[in-house]
Design a protein around this nucleic acid. Structure first.
Lengths: 119, 119
DNA sequence: TAGCGTCACTTACAAAGAGTAAGTGACTAA
DNA sequence: TTAGTCACTTACTCTTTGTAAGTGACGCTA
């Protein structure tokens, strides 16, 4: 019998790419218009240079992000594949908003620092 | 949701819960009807007892999964919160199917598009 | 009732990944 | 000249994951 019914390696790969630590917020920042390294970093509290550089390289390898360096500046943009993640990000954001933990109100902003340091 | 800076800790939390290693496939298996520990494990190649036990405990703590142990058996089911992840899983599956990498087309482990439709 | 298998875990240890901090060279504004 | 920003690297530490083996409770078969 098929032991792995309902299992799909393509789905598995996708969910771990999207859900890999920091990738969600990074893709969201890019969808929101951030296109510089420092801009992305400054939008995501807790994310360090090291991890951002690594994640961007991985996303580039996956064809989600494109890196363009002109003479003086480096720009990161989403590819078509990357842009097509918008509905995924949107559905996660909707779920998150609907099931926002009771403790956090709309002013959850203040908890961001503590949040990123939980562990 | 705050769109002023584009960063939202609630979203961050959600995407890392859903995307945490193995959680996507686990939730998908539960949505597909698996409800026993061994059944979930056997549907997800590579997932070990240790990690499955840990992930289920975490998902339970997050209110996504419910554990019910009768005299002889243990059952895992999705809560309402868990079931409401169906559209998220669905949108990821669609994205994955649309952007399936060229190399993995002749997978013997199950055709992605067909599999993602089982329910 | 002895032996074997399954179930739902747990424990121990090594490897991989992430966090912290400091450094790099190229450029730029004061 | 000096200081600062930008887009990264490198080194080190600590946490998480992978691998493998073990646990007790239960069931089946002979």
């Amino acid at each position: 019998m098929d032991e792995t019914q309902g299992y799909c390696p393509v789905f598995h790969r996708a969910v771990e790419l999207i859900g890999r630590r920091w990738n969600g917020p990074i893709i969201r920042a890019l969808l929101d218009g951030a296109d510089r390294f420092g801009e992305i970093r400054s939008r995501i509290p807790g994310l360090t240079d090291r991890l951002l550089a690594q994640r961007l390289r991985e996303l580039e390898r996956e064809g989600v992000v494109e890196r363009a360096s002109s003479a003086t500046t480096v720009h990161y943009t989403l590819t078509t594949k990357g842009h097509s993640l918008a509905p995924v990000i949107e559905s996660i954001a909707q779920w998150a908003a609907a099931w926002e933990p009771p403790g956090s109100t709309s002013s959850a902003q203040g908890r961001s620092a503590a949040d990123s340091r939980r562990r």
